[in-house]
Simulated scan of single mutants.
Amino acid sequence: MKYFMCRFVPPGPDFLKTMTPDDRLLMKSHGEFLQALLERGGVVAHGPVADPAGGWGMSLFEMADTESADDVRAIVAEDPMIKANVGARYDVLPMLQLRMRN
C-alpha cells in the first residue's frame, strides 16, 4: 500500500472563524465527503488541525501500490469545497513510509 498525507487548506487563514452560514454548509459537506471516504476505506484518518497560523485539515489516504498522487488528486477534486471554487485547495504529499499500530 501507498500512503498520502493531504493538507486541506481553506480559503483563508481566518476562514474557520469568519464562515458565513453558506460556508458552514459547504464545510459540513466537506466533512461528510471525507467521512464517506473513511467509511469506504480510502481514507485512514481525517480531521481539523489547530495551527496558530490558521487552521487546516489533514487526511491520510491509503492507496494501492499501482496508484499515485494523481489518483489522490482526482479523488479530492470531488470535494464539495474544491468543486465550489471558493479558493480552498489540497496539498497531496506522498509519505516515504508509514508505521502504524495494527
Rank of each mutant, 00 (worst) to 15 (best):
D23Q: 06
C6T: 08
L37C: 12
M81A: 14
M100A: 10
D91V: 00
L96W: 05
L37T: 03
V72A: 02
G57H: 01
A64T: 12
P10T: 11
L98K: 08
L60T: 00
D65F: 07
E39V: 10
P80R: 05
A64Y: 04
F33H: 11
N85M: 07
P48V: 10
N85P: 05
A50R: 10
D79A: 00
P13D: 06
L98P: 02
P48A: 14
F15K: 06
G42W: 05
A53I: 03
L38V: 15
V44R: 09
A36S: 14
L96G: 13
R101A: 13
P21D: 13
D22A: 15
S59R: 12
S59T: 14
G47T: 09
V86G: 04
D65Q: 04
E78Y: 08
R40W: 03
F61I: 01
V86I: 15
S59D: 05
M95I: 03
L26N: 08
V49G: 07
F61N: 00
M58E: 02
A74W: 06
L60C: 09
S68V: 04
E67L: 10
G42Q: 15
H30G: 04
L16T: 13
L60V: 04
V92H: 09
N102R: 14
T66L: 12
A77D: 06
D22F: 06
R89G: 00
G57C: 01
V72W: 05
R7W: 08
H46W: 14
T66C: 09
G54V: 04
M81F: 05
G55S: 12
D71H: 04
E78P: 02
F15L: 14
T20W: 05
M100Y: 13
P13T: 11
N85A: 13
E62H: 10
A53E: 10
M63Y: 02
L25S: 13
G42E: 15
M5E: 01
R7F: 13
F8H: 07
M63T: 03
P13C: 12
V9M: 09
